[in-house]
């Protein structure tokens, strides 16, 4: 279990929660949303209300479609043939706090110590996680006091803090806080002095780094 954070100040937008509730987000965004919700009961409850809209829609009888005559019998056979729902054994004892909530651990294959980092620039390291190609998600490690590589945005970018903190024009972002940025926002997040800042960042467009060197690097590291 990851432990809840009560001081979260920067939350997901309604559009993202509704996108998750309706199953219309790219996988990379789903991962950021699921990871934030693991840390934030406020957004978990907001998501619950958007899922209730889906429940109400499905409940309306007007356009129900008949199932096959033997559907119930085949379903019961399916149930009998299936392995019993395994009792889930948590991979950590409750008292052992992990940095990564469960959905993120599933993608990394473990907690923070299992990440396979690659250096990019200025002491910043990243690890791209495998998802469907309509968006990308990566872990970023930014040394205390260092700036995230400067970039402009196309589309939407989500940045969720898992450890440490960063600051930009929108204020301070600490564990559990998520920044939702779009074309209009041009920011330079800077990690707070001290410990390294670990973020989960997703974007549905390739990042556009300023300056020739990062751009060349971009070609090689696939940002």
């Amino acid at each position: 279990m990851t432990g809840m954070t009560n001081e979260i100040k920067h939350h997901l937008t309604d559009a993202l929660l509704m996108g998750y509730a309706s199953g219309n987000l790219p996988e990379a965004f789903d991962l950021v949303v699921a990871t934030h919700i693991s840390l934030c009961d406020e957004c978990r409850a907001r998501l619950g209300s958007f899922e209730a809209v889906g429940g109400a829609l499905i409940d309306e009888a007007a356009d129900a479609v008949d199932v096959n005559d033997d559907a119930l019998e085949s379903t019961l056979r399916l149930i009998e043939g299936a392995p019993k729902d395994p009792i889930r054994i948590r991979d950590t004892a409750p008292e052992a706090e992990t940095v990564f909530p469960e959905p993120l651990r599933d993608y990394v294959g473990g907690d923070l110590d299992a990440v396979r980092w690659r250096s990019i620039a200025g002491g910043v390291k990243q690890a791209v996680l495998p998802t469907s190609r309509d968006a990308t998600v990566r872990l970023l490690a930014i040394p205390g006091g260092a700036a995230m590589p400067d970039h402009g945005h196309h589309g939407t970018e989500l940045t969720l803090v898992l450890k440490g903190a960063f600051r930009d024009d929108d204020g301070l972002f600490a564990r559990g806080d998520v920044e939702v940025a779009n074309e209009d926002l041009h920011h330079t997040p800077i990690a707070e002095p001290g410990e390294v800042c670990i973020c989960l960042a997703a974007t549905d467009a390739p990042l556009r780094f300023k300056g020739i060197l990062p751009r060349i690097a971009q070609r090689f590291i696939g940002i």
Binding site: E27, D30, L31, A34, S38, R44, R88, P103, L104
Partner: peptide, 8 residues
């Protein structure tokens, strides 16, 4: 695509 779910 995979479906990441919040921690239970």
């Amino acid at each position: 695509q995979r479906r990441p779910e919040p921690e239970d």
